[in-house]
Design a protein around this nucleic acid. Sequence first.
RNA 1: GGACCCGUAGCAUAACUGGAUAAUGCACUUGACUACGAAUCAAGCGAUUACAGGUUCGAAUCCUGUCGGGUUCACCA
Length: 599
Amino acid sequence: MQRINKILTEQVQNIIKELYGADVPENQVQVNKTRKEFNGDFTIVVFPFLRFSKKSPEITAQEIGDALVKNMQDVEAYNVIKGFLNISLSDDYWKNFFNGIIGNDNYGFKEITENSNKIVIEYSSPNTNKPLHLGHIRNNLLGWSEAKIMEANGNKVIKVNLVNDRGIHICKSMLAWKELAGGKTPDDVKMKGDHFVGDYYVAFDKEYKKQIAELVANGMDEKEAKNEALWMKNARKMLQEWESGKPEVRNLWETMNNWVYAGFDETYKKLGVSFDKVYHESQTYLLGKDVILKALEDGKLQKREDGSIIIDLTKDGLDEKVLLRADGTALYMTQDIGTAILRYEDFNFNESAYVVGNEQDYHFKVLKIVLEKLGYVWAKNISHISYGMVELPDGKMKSREGTVVDADDLVDEMIKTAKQKSDELGKLESFSKEEKNEIFRKIALGALKYFILKVDAKKNMTFNPEESIDFNGNTGPFVQYTYVRIQSMLAKAKELGIKNIHKYNNSEKLEQTELSLLNLIYDFEDVIVEAGKRRNPSVIANYVFDLAKEFNRFYHEIPPILKEENKDLMKFRLSLSEKTAIIIKNALDLMGIEVPERM
RNA sequence: GGACCCGUAGCAUAACUGGAUAAUGCACUUGACUACGAAUCAAGCGAUUACAGGUUCGAAUCCUGUCGGGUUCACCA
């Protein structure tokens, strides 16, 4: 079925042609949803047409309105306020629309076919030297949700993770563990592997600072001390040994990384995210090196006197960028070049998206230009889904200053709060402990995910650990509650022996709140498209909140549905409720949020 | 210093990307559970959209400048 806003746009174009003899391009016809405080379903802004009509806004709007009513059966009435033409569609239009989608549980979703666009999306990208924190949570949730939204728009999506598993930072944890752990493993001390390793990373930093202080106290200047501190020298040596493949170092590296992966897996599972493929930088940096050396031979890059290889981007408004160190070892950029190429070889994608924080805007700008200059035509299809930092009320999170919000702690805390809240309300007494825990988990994660995803991805957001995340108002649990409530009503309807709720013949005039609900349901298709275009799950969050709110209003304003004597009307309202629930569930799923059946 | 991003009620966020009287939640004040679940609903309070100019029929949104905050400009990742 063709969308009514599309039809309206075409009609307006035709009418203007007829009335004023002018061709108006499609993008000049603004068909918006009518704002709540005015009467109507869609609003057409007539200001852009005045130069064709050469008449006042009011008269122009009237002329167009008259023509619309005449030409379109679905247009029942219109009103004009200033230059705004508000169109009201007939009840029949809305009823027909609803009947058309009543059996379609995937309303709004596009199908994925053989010919679908193939998009690789990278997100998460952790370091293996410390556990995940709140910033990673935002990344993971965004990545997952973006992937879901891309799929809903009919794209074939491949989710990949790139683990940064090599470099000096890893050697720091390894060294500290060797020196301090006495051979203990995470199992021995009953810790999650990522936290275990992270602690040794912190321990390294502590000891390192101590060593610097000692050297400075003995008269060395600080810069030199930083280089000369024993542990730092040892860490650098370890990195060289790693690069040259010394078995002892490689074994330890593998062991400790595996501890970390086990910890990450647990956190990913808790968050409900997963990947189709995991890349490791230790496997891609050599490719990057080869590509750069080859490009140097081809004269695409320059070599400095000290032996480092650079690309000059000053003509592109950027800087000179080093691609390979003087000693020939790889850099972040080197690896990313290798990974990007490998990824193209693996998937032959139409598009490759990176979910990475906005502090790396510059890096990705450079990466794209460098790849283009190296002659990779597909590089133009690389995009950076840039998102803002998560800040604490007193500023940024800093791992070294201990002001991080740990991912595992936060989720556990949320689950505790959900349990407490639920116990106060006492609605789950009849459930087993396992069932209850499952419900608490869904609610807690619903609250957390919604809290993070409702904010425009590109904006920085503040998180106050002192105030726990809300469960009332514009929150995940509010939306979940609406869903649960509908399920409860539908179950009761079944108990009462009401069957075939999709079969009715409702001849009643639609109530205002029913019209609003139908309007919102109609919007879902456009919302998915917009969320995809804007690369922004917050569009979905805002929508599903409005939908839930409107349903709750409907629920309160309309007399009890299950007591309705007009069976046709009752079934229509049950169907409307059911459809609302399905869309809530689908919309939340796009954000990675599950719905409980009871709460 | 150069480049990029941001500044909206006490707080947290919206505003269909240039459209109507700037919306919602939290907090605060009221009212509604012997009618389908009150994690709900209804009502109230609260904004010179950082500031000053400009463009436009129309500006939170675009342009210029000022002030404030952030990120980046590493042979760190």
